[in-house]
Amino acid sequence: CKVCGDVASGFHYGVHACEGCKGFFRRSIQQNIQYKKCLKNENCSIMRMNRNRCQQCRFKKCLSVGMSR
């Protein structure tokens, strides 16, 4: 997965992504979610083991690796 490094389940929203990141991105855009501000200057490292800790940084990384509708 380009977002968290887990095993990708396919090509989702323009990038190779796992089911977790695919679902997270889908919910984020469909529900237009505004995530809580990052407590670490929006510089969190997103990996499989910690991908749920900072939703703002995870969504930012989804966009930075090329995920789009």
Rank of each mutant, 00 (worst) to 15 (best):
I29Q: 08
I29S: 03
Q56Y: 12
H12C: 06
C1V: 03
K60L: 11
S64P: 01
C4T: 05
Q55I: 05
F24T: 07
L39R: 10
K2H: 00
F25L: 03
C18G: 01
M49Q: 14
K61Q: 04
R58N: 02
C57A: 03
C18A: 06
Y13H: 10
K36Y: 09
N43P: 07
K40C: 04
F59G: 08
R58V: 00
R27M: 13
V7P: 09
I29C: 08
R27F: 05
I29A: 03
C62G: 01
C57F: 02
E19G: 04
K60Q: 11
S64H: 07
M47S: 14
G66S: 09
M67W: 07
V7K: 14
I33R: 06
G14T: 01
M47E: 15
Q31D: 09
N52M: 07
R48I: 14
R58H: 15
K36S: 14
C57R: 00
V3E: 03
V3L: 02
K37P: 15
C38A: 03
A8M: 05
K2Q: 12
E19R: 12
K61H: 04
C4K: 00
Q30D: 13
Q56R: 11
G66K: 08
C1Y: 07
E19F: 08
I46H: 10
Q30L: 12
N32I: 08
A8K: 07
H16R: 10
C57L: 03
S28T: 15
E42A: 10
N41A: 10
Y13V: 06
N50H: 05
V15M: 03
G66V: 02
G14K: 00
V15Y: 06
N50E: 10
L39T: 11
G5M: 10
F24W: 03
K61T: 04
K61D: 10
N41D: 10
I29M: 10
Q55G: 13
S45K: 04
H12G: 07
R48V: 15
S68D: 12
K2A: 13
S64G: 06
F59D: 02
R26S: 11
N41K: 12
R26E: 12
S45P: 10
V7M: 12
Y13W: 10
S45D: 08
R53E: 15
I33D: 03
R53Q: 15
R26K: 08
Y13K: 06
R58A: 09
Q55A: 13
S64T: 12
A8F: 01
L63G: 00
N32S: 08
R58S: 01
K37G: 07
R27I: 15
N50L: 07
C57V: 00
N50D: 11
R69M: 15
